[in-house]
């Protein structure tokens, strides 16, 4: 069992890595919300008079959006792997996880 109890609210200040990770989680949470907004956005398209928006245009928009979401999710999940969960930090990650974290954490820290 973890030796670190969690009484009351957590600390106000966390170390830089944990802070980064929390913002990454925030981003992972916000991405689908952004996605919902962008998926619904074309409903507002009315087009020119007597010249509605074309299906091809909408197709390009949607597949572009889709690709962007995929790339965004891929980037986020890559960095989410790089750092162990804050709760797990006390338990001690396995050596392999640590080494992955160490090698991949550079860009995340600098981001």
């Amino acid at each position: 069992m973890s030796a670190a109890p969690k009484p009351g609210p957590g600390p106000v200040f966390v170390e830089r890595r944990a802070y980064r990770r929390r913002r990454l989680v925030d981003a992972a949470r916000l991405l689908p919300i952004l996605g919902v907004a962008l998926v619904c956005l074309p409903l507002l398209w009315t087009g020119e008079r007597e010249q509605p928006m074309s299906t091809t245009y909408a197709m390009i928009y949607f597949f572009g959006l889709w690709l962007a979401l995929v790339i965004g999710a891929a980037l986020l999940s890559r960095y989410l792997k790089a750092t162990p969960e804050p709760g797990d930090a006390a338990d001690g990650a396995t050596p392999s996880e640590n080494s992955v974290a160490g090698s991949a954490n550079g860009p995340a820290g600098g981001a």
Binding site: V25, A28, R29, L31, P32, I33, G35, V36, V39, T55, A58, M59, F62, W66, L69, G72, A73
Partner: peptide
């Protein structure tokens, strides 16, 4: 119905991208 078929796949896409929720 044209592009409406996309909804069937956009819904799950959003759910999976929001896996953290």
């Amino acid at each position: 119905s044209g592009l409406e078929f996309l909804t069937i796949y956009l819904g799950p896409t959003l759910v999976v991208i929001g896996w953290w929720w």
